[in-house]
Design a protein around this nucleic acid. Structure first.
Length: 278
DNA sequence: ATTCTTGTTGCATC
DNA sequence: AGATGCAACAAGAA
């Protein structure tokens, strides 16, 4: 379920490998996750180098590699987990905590035996490669983080106006404005804001835009705050109820509804999120 | 066997 | 031109 908080958790998992020399790579060259990557150049740049640092922005991750722990980077790798991708670590000596998978498309073998694994059964994820010392363009050009000062009510209002006829559910999934929001966060936001998922984006008044802005920030902050390796979503959120058949709204105890909106399965509470008269 | 899926992109249509 | 909607991508689960 890789949305922004899960992506941050996955990124952090590989922190244990920072400073370690990469002795070799295992890749599945023909798998779609490597589309557009020059694998020979990628391997040449990474083998013998050290994992220096990493960062996550929305659903995108960046890993920096250099010739030595205290040297500047000379190569960058981007990872996107797609629908089902995940990062794993296998410590040396210990039996691998998972069955050796045919979907482990990228394994960084570090000196000493630790393995950093990118697994993706559905191949919707993506590996990006950028040789060079500077952060790549695809990283620099990402839209402002939802918790940054650049994500303002004004920016939100302008975007909703531009997408005025699209349903709010579809608009919240647009990464160009809401980096890191996925299906569950979009449903959570609309539920907390009391907005029906099919509400046309352009129909909110200024007070509703401000309220939606606060809700986006609150759900984002809560998601980032609650994650840990053994995290669990509070029962007071919509999240743990949205896939249950006969699930009940944690606020009003009424029955939840599940239908496709904006091309995606969407869950909402008809009582708390009434459809507007248009 | 058929239908479903937590994401993104490219294309057709308005 | 820009906005919108949808099929396609791949694999496994129910």
């Amino acid at each position: 379920m890789p949305e922004l908080a899960e992506v941050e958790l996955a990124r952090r998992l590989w922190d244990v490998g920072r400073g370690g020399v990469i002795e070799s790579l295992s890749t599945s060259p023909k798998v779609r996750v490597f589309r557009g990557v020059d694998l020979r150049a990628f391997e040449r740049a990474l083998v013998g180098s050290v994992l220096l640092s990493s960062a996550a922005h929305g659903k995108q991750m960046l890993f920096r590699f250099g010739p030595a722990p205290d040297a500047p980077p000379h190569a960058h790798m981007g990872l996107h987990l797609g629908m089902q991708g995940d990062l794993l670590v296998a410590e040396p000596g210990a039996p691998e905590p998972w069955e050796r998978g045919k979907h482990d498309h990228l394994v960084l073998h570090q000196r000493g035996g630790r393995k950093l694994v990118f697994r993706d059964t559905r191949h919707f994820g993506r590996v990006l490669f950028h040789p060079g010392a500077e952060d790549p363009a695809w990283w620099r050009d990402l839209p402002p983080n939802l918790l940054s000062g650049e994500f303002t009510t004004k920016a939100l209002g302008a975007f909703l106006t531009r997408r005025k006829r699209a349903p709010l559910k579809a608009v919240l999934l647009m990464q160009e404005r809401f980096p890191g929001i996925g299906n569950w966060m979009a449903d959570e936001i609309l539920w907390r804001a009391g907005l029906h998922p099919e509400t046309p984006a352009g129909s909110l008044d200024p007070a509703e835009v401000a309220d939606l802005w606060r809700t986006v920030r609150r759900v984002t902050r809560d998601a980032v705050r609650v994650i840990s390796p053994d995290w669990k979503y509070p029962d007071s959120w919509l999240f743990p109820h949205r896939w249950e058949d006969g699930g009940k709204c944690p606020r009003c105890r009424g029955g939840l509804v599940r239908e496709t909106v904006g091309g995606r399965t969407t869950c909402w509470c008809p009582a708390c999120q009434p459809r507007r008269l248009s």
